[in-house]
Computed example of a mutant assay.
Amino acid sequence: MTKTGAATVLSLRGISKSFGAVAALADVDLDVGEGEVVAIVGDNGAGKSTLVKVLAGVHPPDSGVIEFEGREVRLESPTQVHALGIATVFQDLALCENLDVKANLFLGREIRPFLLDDVAMEKRSWELLRQLSAKIPTLSVPVAALSGGQRQTVAIARSLLGDPKVILLDEPTAALGVAQTAEVLNLVERLRDKGLGVVMISHNMEDVRAVADRVAVLRLGRNNGVFDARTVSTEDIIAAITGAADNAVSRRASRAADSEPRTAEGSEAR
């Protein structure tokens, strides 16, 4: 289920992925709607990174069905996935620090009818950065001179080349300061305002509560709850992440079973 009124743009059903004897994902379901931010949370080893790599085309799933804009698709390579309309910003950003902003935005996708079209690339670069209200003063500044938040902005702006419908963000605020984190969260909201579906992997509950519409919890490679971010408590999310919620259900079931009247032979009384 997506948030109320949002058309589903990406849907996963029964996605499984194993590496040898290790099941990284088992029967995972996920829906992402247009103009919706879905946060995926979970402990280390929960399967978050594997799920992102499946969606990015790095690891094709072993089984399951993926639908994009209502039709079944196979995500077989990063190039094919990007052409389909799903863009990924990994945690390491994959930026070249010795190159300037414009060169990073068009790295591998340069506009060149014959020679490099610097004018067209500069125009498109400013269009992308203005869409995100980016605080970058010039396109000629080397990425090495940018702050963490500005680098994340460049990586997100680069992902918008090709007009994707879904953006995957892997820990976008990791290792950022307070001001830089706020800057990145504003970018996430702008992506949602543009009508994009956003999948955000995060371990920071404050960030999740700040921008997510729904929170999907993975535990040991499986779904362990999908919550409305506006109404769920942080305690309930953490309980789903750690398995405390499952333990509470088990304890209630055990107490209910223990309270059933028994006959002398140990069978339930009728």
Rank of each mutant, 00 (worst) to 15 (best):
R270Y: 13
L116H: 03
A212H: 05
A94G: 04
A56Y: 06
T242E: 01
R209S: 13
E189K: 12
L115P: 00
D170F: 10
S159H: 03
A244H: 13
R130W: 05
G197I: 00
T231W: 01
D228W: 08
S16R: 07
G162T: 07
L25K: 09
K123G: 07
R74P: 02
T50E: 01
D43I: 12
M1A: 15
P164N: 09
L84K: 04
V28L: 07
K17W: 04
R124Q: 14
S11C: 06
L160Y: 03
T234N: 10
I86Y: 05
R262K: 15
G162Y: 07
R251M: 14
S259A: 14
P164I: 06
G42T: 10
A26P: 03
L12C: 12
A46P: 13
D228I: 10
N204S: 08
L176K: 08
F90C: 04
V32A: 09
A6P: 01
E36K: 12
V89S: 03
R230K: 15
V37I: 15
M121H: 06
G5I: 08
G70M: 14
V208N: 08
V198N: 06
S77N: 12
T88P: 07
L187V: 10
V217S: 06
S63Q: 13
R251F: 02
L146E: 04
L146A: 09
E69S: 10
I156V: 15
V184W: 00
A179D: 10
M121K: 08
E67R: 15
S49R: 07
R192N: 06
E189S: 11
V154W: 02
D258M: 15
T79C: 00
V198E: 04
V184D: 00
G45E: 10
I238D: 05
D163L: 01
T138F: 11
V54K: 05
R192V: 09
G64K: 10
F19M: 02
I238G: 09
E171H: 04
G70V: 14
G70S: 13
L169M: 12
G148Q: 10
G243V: 02
R71K: 15
S125P: 05
A264S: 11
K17A: 06
V215T: 12
L30R: 05
L51F: 08
S159P: 04
A83L: 09
M1K: 14
Q131N: 08
D170L: 10
P113H: 05
